[in-house]
Each structure stands twice: as C-alpha cells, then as structure tokens.
Design a protein around this nucleic acid. Structure first.
Lengths: 188, 188
DNA sequence: TTCATTGTTCAAAAAATTCAGAAATTAAAT
DNA sequence: ATTTAATTTCTGAATTTTTTGAACAATGAA
C-alpha cells in the first residue's frame, strides 16, 4: 500500500479544511478528504485516502458518497485496474460554485419558501405587521442573493474575470449604469 | 410574567431559524433567539425569551452573550426598570452584513493566513507544485471575496440598491466597463 | 466456481455538542 | 448592611453527530 506523504504544510492545509468542514456544510473528515483531493495531483484510491488521513475505510466510503452528492469529486478509472481513483471535479472556482449552489438549495430555498408562505398571511395586530415587514426584508435579501448567484453562473469566464478585477471600480461603473442601460425605456 | 404569544406562522419561522442556526455559525437555541428578536417589535427580556422558547434562563444568558459578540442584538433600558431588554442591532441588511463579516473573520481570514504561509514555501516536487497552484487559486478566490465584501460596505445605500437591482444587466454593464474606466491608461 | 480485491452498509462505540438547573455573582433598592 | 432581583457561570446529563470495524456485496481474474 502506497502511503501518500504530504509535506508538513500540506498536512496543515488538509487539517484546516477539516476544521472548516462543518462551516461549508459537511463534517470534519469530509472536509479533510475534500482538501486532500484538491491539492493532490494524481487521483487517489479510497485506501490511500484512508491511510493518508488515518481514518477508517468505511468512513472514506461514506465521505466519497457525500462529496459526490455535492459534485465536488469525480471518479477516474485506469484500464486493467478495477480500483476507483478520485480527484476534484473541476477548478477551484467550479468547486466553490458547487458548494454555494448546494448550500443555497439546502438553506436558502427552504427558507424562502417558508417566508413566502408566511407573507401570504394577513397580518392583524401591530406586532404581526412588524414581523411581516422584517420577513419581507429577509425574503427580498435572499431573493437578491439567489438572482445574483444565477447571474454569476451565466457570465462568461472573461466577464467573470472582468467583474472580479473590478473591485473599487464598481462605484464608478454604477454611476454610469443608467446611461448605458437606458436604451429601451425600461423602468426598472 | 408576560408570555409572548407568537402566531403559528411566526413560531414556524423561529423554529426554522433554529434549524438554520448552525449553518450561520451558531447553535439551535441561539438561532431561535436571533429569529425571535428579529421579528418581535418590542425588545424582550431574558425571561420572556426563555419562556417563549421554553429554554432555560441560563441558556438564554449564554445565547445573549454570543449574539452580542456577533453584534446582532443590542440592549435597551427602560427608565425605572433594571431589567435589560434585547432587540435586533440594526436592519436586516445590517444583520446579514454582520453575520458575513463575522464569519469572514472566523473562517476566511485564518484560511487566508494559512494559505499565505503555505505559498511562501518553495515547492520542490511536481506534486508540491500542483498543491501550491491549487492553493494559490483558493487564495485568490478568497482575496477577491474579501475585497468585494469591503467594496459592498463602502457603497452608498443608493448605489447598493442600484447594484442589487442590476441583475441580468450586469453582463451588459461589464461590456461597457472598459469604455467607462479607460480614462487614465490603466493597463489592468 | 473460487479467490482475492474493492466497495458498501450499518450497528455500536466514541466524541462532541447542547442544555437545564443549581450555585455564584453582581447590582440595585431599602 | 441586608434583601431582593437580575444575570452569569458551571457541571453533568442528555442528545446528536461522527467514526469505527466487521459483516456483507460486488467485481473480475484465474
């Protein structure tokens, strides 16, 4: 069994991914696995992962399933070898997008539907009216986030690059926005 | 002891906040407390919170401390009453910002510093070079996020509004960006 | 078919988190 | 200074989550 040897710094990175794991929606070992596969050039087998991280084989199997459900890793096959080799499913940007998308599905969407449901109700008391106002704001905020994330996905890589580099230029661009967009008499 | 009576829907909202709580960085009861205080018009006392959510007084005390450390709630005082009354620390947008900011401080910043540390190292093997490339990308992504969040904070409320409504217009605006910003011969 | 290897599942153990309630502390009022 | 109200801290119990490891299933080679 080949033991992957990670440099000390790389170990630190992988462990850090573990600690951050739960923040991103999964648990420690899955975070570690994700980090490990991301910085490892050659795809790894389940056994290599288990050995490198010193975790049980069963745990790896579950982790792989989970990471696949997030579409963060993909399987590679080598002809004449029936082991499965796992590697990252795409670029860092792709992966960040996946995590965001998946979390949106699990967190924002249910919240939005609960809020919509709630906002249909007629408010009677003053307190209820206040509650609804607040919920309306949360709703609008989440909708905006949703709209924007869809928007970002739609941009071409060049546009994205351009947007990313914009930084503090955003203010200036915004000031010009009206002049640009007011060709057809759109009111919004 | 005045018992707050929440409408059925509002209860659902508060419970939902509890379930989402851990996603946002705190635990169930703290999530519930945050939700409750957000939709309640009048600031509440610790006892009212405990009664409304059926949790222990001690637990509320801890939760308050935590929510204060996130700067999500603030204390009100009523003359001649020495109880403390708790309410949201700002608008929904403010609160969302706080959560984001605070999480950035707790998650992104430590990660960035670990990555920087890592990227100083000289890569020797091919594997190490690959690992560094990946880390560089993560680093750049996180830096961009950081820069952008700072940028958003800097925008005036009107510009923000404008940006939020932009939606699919962003593509078009980007296409014009160069013409707008290329006044001094900036190469970037 | 049998064997060796790889992958999956799941019950039970281990670890981590959350929480209530008691005890301690602080602060105001008398 | 004492009493009373309000708040905080702390501990162990309860709950939830994670992880292991062994049993089981699948796969392909001999």
């Amino acid at each position: 069994m080949k033991i992957m040897s990670l440099s000390e710094k790389n170990v630190a990175f992988v462990m850090h991914c573990g600690e951050m794991g739960s923040r991103w929606g999964f648990n420690r070992t899955i975070g570690q696995m994700c980090g490990l596969l991301t910085i490892t050039k050659e795809p790894m087998t389940a056994n290599e992962i288990a050995d490198t991280l010193s975790i049980s084989r069963g745990n790896v199997s579950m982790g792989i399933k989970e990471l696949q459900s997030w579409r963060l890793i993909k399987v590679h096959h080598i002809p004449g070898d029936r082991k499965e080799y796992y590697g990252p499913a795409g670029s860092i940007w792709d992966m960040a997008n996946r995590v965001f998308e998946e979390r949106k599905k699990r967190e924002i969407d249910p919240t939005l539907s609960l809020l919509r449901d709630n906002l249909l109700e007629q408010a009677h008391t003053d307190d209820e009216r206040f509650a609804q106002q607040q919920m309306q704001e949360i709703h609008d905020l989440l909708e905006t986030v949703t709209k924007w994330s869809a928007e970002l996905q739609r941009l071409s890589p060049e546009q994205l690059q351009s947007l990313m580099k914009l930084g503090s230029g955003i203010g200036k661009v915004l000031d010009f926005k009206d002049k640009i967009l007011k060709k057809p008499g759109k009111s919004e």
